[in-house]
Design a protein around this nucleic acid. Structure first.
Lengths: 220, 220
DNA sequence: TAGATTGTTAATCGATTAACAATC
DNA sequence: TAGATTGTTAATCGATTAACAATC
């Protein structure tokens, strides 16, 4: 470690590549690979080696010049940077189809984000068991967040309720929200929001599909 | 319409804003708003007016200099550009929790992407009804895609099966794939893929949460 | 040593923002 | 007309890529 950089200086684009680096490195680790060069790793991710080194450079000194990266050292280093060295408990607000799907998604825990609370306002859903956890009534939101030390929430409530639930989450100490509701959330600057909107994704895809079908993509 | 531009020249960033423009404009339309200036529209989306005009400029002439945009003209124009003037039938491959959640998501049809086929390899899921549609066996994949004229598929199968299913989809004439499997897909250049990976999103969020909690964000 | 590799800076590329003429 | 607005180009900003010295 040679330089300390403030996170704010790390470009958004780099931040989004970090999880992909970690994912691929964990795969290599599981295969017993010990060393990997920037070229090898970059190629497997379909990016340029210089970009990968440039990205790593924000955090300084993962290897020494002349030596390839050691998978066993890089994995924990990236986990520390991303913030998943310790498990990060998460809450899921909204136990509809999507909320249930996410609560059921076993990989969440494996990736470092164990689900420690599932909440819904619908009394018919409250009490339902998902992977050994009950769906809780919304009045349990604040106490469970406090008790479990939850900092990240996944929001899967209908759009009309998204903002009021968000306000409660912020007051309860939540610092990061993954928003699946198709609406923009107002939060203080000290809270990070990531919007996951399926509709936007499928429409962007549709634009490209149209361009492929109409031979309008500049490839011919 | 003054200029015809090839789609390939439209930047990725612009493509991803088009659905957001359309979404907001439809909202305005539903409220009975007839005219909207670039400044008003941009402000409501938290972007710069010049960026919005610059984006629209790729497609040329939505209004005339001096006159604001007419919502009633802009909505169908954007729908045409994005490719949702006609409903685009989609197939969902994989009827696990996530696949079921998506098949249940009524908004899909409203947004212009009606679900016209849900498929799974698990015989215990085959026959299950979701919103009036049966989960079909995988051997129905090719005939249904052909019969319904489906061009876009949503992939929610486990990662180990993602590539083989993709190969079948491509052979069956699918041109766009929304990939929820946590693995990269190999496809010909004539097929568009959009990766929707929850793990990447929550990890990118985690990085920011860490930076907020540690006061390492340059805001103080 | 010779070849390969990283860390780091400089050059290139692309996207955002500002500016303003033309128009209503 | 005066004020507001778009379309369009130029200026700025940021991210990617290339280049290469230092190192093994």
């Amino acid at each position: 470690m040679r330089k300390v950089r403030r996170h704010s200086e790390v470009p958004e684009a780099t931040i989004h590549r970090l999880p992909r680096y970690l994912e691929k490195l964990k795969l290599l680790q599981a295969m017993g690979v010990e060393d990997v060069s920037s070229r090898q790793l970059a190629e497997s991710l379909d990016i340029k080696a210089s970009q990968l080194r440039h990205d790593f450079h924000y955090f300084g000194g993962f290897s020494r010049p002349g030596r390839p990266y050691q998978v066993g050292k890089l994995v924990p280093a990236l986990e520390k940077i991303i913030g998943v060295s310790e498990p990060q408990p998460v809450a899921i607000i909204g136990a509809g189809h999507l909320g249930q799907a996410l609560a059921n998604y076993a990989n969440m825990g494996v990736q470092g984000f164990p689900v420690r609370g599932v909440f819904d306002a619908n009394p018919r859903l409250v009490g339902l068991e998902i992977r050994g956890q009950p769906v809780r009534d919304m009045d349990q939101l604040e106490p469970v967040i406090a008790q479990e030390g939850i900092r990240i929430a996944i929001l899967t409530v209908p759009a009309p309720f998204a903002q009021e639930v968000t306000d409660r989450l912020v007051k309860a100490g939540i610092v990061g929200i993954v928003n699946f509701a198709p609406t923009d959330l107002k939060v203080p600057k000290t809270v990070a929001v990531r919007n996951e909107r399926l509709a936007v994704g499928i429409m962007a895809l549709s634009f490209k599909v149209k361009c492929i079908l109409e031979g309008d993509c500049g490839t011919e």
